[in-house]
Design a protein around this nucleic acid. Structure first.
Lengths: 243, 243
DNA sequence: CGCAAGTTTGACGTACATCAAGTAGTGTGG
DNA sequence: CCACACTACTTGATGTACGTCAAACTTGCG
């Protein structure tokens, strides 16, 4: 509630890693960024940073000084309760912006799911640009609105959907973000999925098995999923009757 | 996903009601609005509207043409699944703005909880004002950010908290919104609370009884609650150990 | 290869949902 | 003022979806 304005710097723990790891396949997908006004205006003020798997980009309570964009890899924002329960608010894939809190402090911790490259944009400079360029201002607003809207959908899912409905919703959401390709690469672990969907790892695993049995999906190597029956998945995700 | 741009007008069903009902006691509380730049700029473009209990201010899928402010009464935003399951995204009390979707369509339905008076501001005019007055622009951004932040907190609660923790969180949230007065008026029904917290009406009722038994709260007439042990409630709400 | 981390599967427990009666509150008309 | 109905809330008995605990199985990197 009270903004404490702590002076702790943005977490740079894993900034200088140069590990030669294969980037997640996700990066092979079509780049989400075309030549929008934002990209041009932002190129100059961005700083490239690298993070190893599980390294924090920023932590809950850090002063919200920057906005970030995923270049490669993937990022999650989450909060951990005192007894270890964790809720993931969102996943960010290449091209996605995150950390747009625009308040005194970040309310969530952001961590790299897989080794990630991220560009950071100082908020102060971003605000300057926005004041002179209404197009950028509007883009910021629209990004915030999209975030709000997706968070609200997440809310409904967590409040009222069953485990199977949650998983179907999750898979279709991922599909929509990867140009409606039914071949999905899940950069995150089962635990991440569970904490995103408000379930346990075991329940997620059981639902995946159930979907395989019903031929809704097929799985290769636990991180490659192919959606095989979109109609059935969509019926589940939107809260229609069980089969 | 696809913006259909339907031409249906904003719901005006209950606009012209003039029923002489006692307004909820909430209105007696301190007005949340001081003389901010927004208020001045907005006074001219606002339209006052009245809604009877349960009347819709706007419905899911309506074109998002206006932003609204509660003058008196209370409003909820919710979504109903096909089989009747309902999730309430937020409650809005006098002074609160709602409907700030800033997208093609409203993602949720907004309904009056108690008979309500609301001011509507056309988005087109609001955008004009914002372009010339950066202060208004910033206020819009900050309102959006606050909404996002509160939705994210809601998310964690729905994903990872127990029934008792949810109720404690809810009561403390209401308290914070009413100038930290421990005497709360709940304008909403037990069903509304249940649908906000992702529970059933019976579970909410049982938790209220449990809190009474433990002397965390005392209740008069089902809608007047007094918080009697803030420490215990805060410990619960933030996910500390059970007692 | 070989180990450690991640995932799946099974047996069992529990918090919350569901179903079903009650018991306030609230408003209406005599 | 009470009788009536109606809606909202509470309480109890029982069910179930998902969590927990524990053991096997896979996967993938050193």
């Amino acid at each position: 509630m009270t903004a404490m304005l702590q002076i702790a710097p943005i977490a740079h723990e894993a900034l200088s890693t140069r590990s030669r790891v294969a980037w997640p396949v996700i990066e092979g997908g079509k780049p989400r960024e075309t030549t929008d006004p934002m990209t041009a205006a932002l190129q100059s003020i961005g700083t490239v940073m690298k993070f190893k798997r599980n390294a924090a980009v920023f932590s809950e309570g850090d002063p919200a000084r920057c906005v970030y964009k995923v270049v490669s890899g993937a990022v999650r924002t989450c909060r951990v309760l005192m007894d270890g329960r964790r809720q993931i608010a969102d996943f960010y894939l290449p091209g996605d912006f995150f950390g747009l809190d625009w308040q005194a402090e970040h309310g969530f911790t952001a961590e790299a799911i897989a080794d990630a490259v991220v560009v950071s944009y100082p908020r102060s400079q971003l605000e300057q640009i926005a004041e002179t360029k209404p197009a950028v201002q509007k883009l910021l607003m629209s990004m915030l609105c999209k975030g709000l809207s997706s968070t609200q959908n997440h809310l409904v899912m967590l409040g009222r959907q069953t485990a199977q409905e949650r998983l179907a919703w999750f898979l279709l959401g991922l599909m929509a973000r990867s140009d409606d390709n039914t071949n999905l690469d899940l950069p995150m672990s089962r635990l991440d999925i569970a904490d995103y969907l408000g379930l346990t790892i075991e329940t997620v695993s059981r639902c995946v098995s159930e979907f395989k049995r019903k031929h809704f999906i097929s799985v290769a190597g636990t991180h490659q999923v192919t959606l095989r029956n979109l109609d059935a998945l969509e019926a589940l995700a939107s809260g229609e009757a069980e089969i």
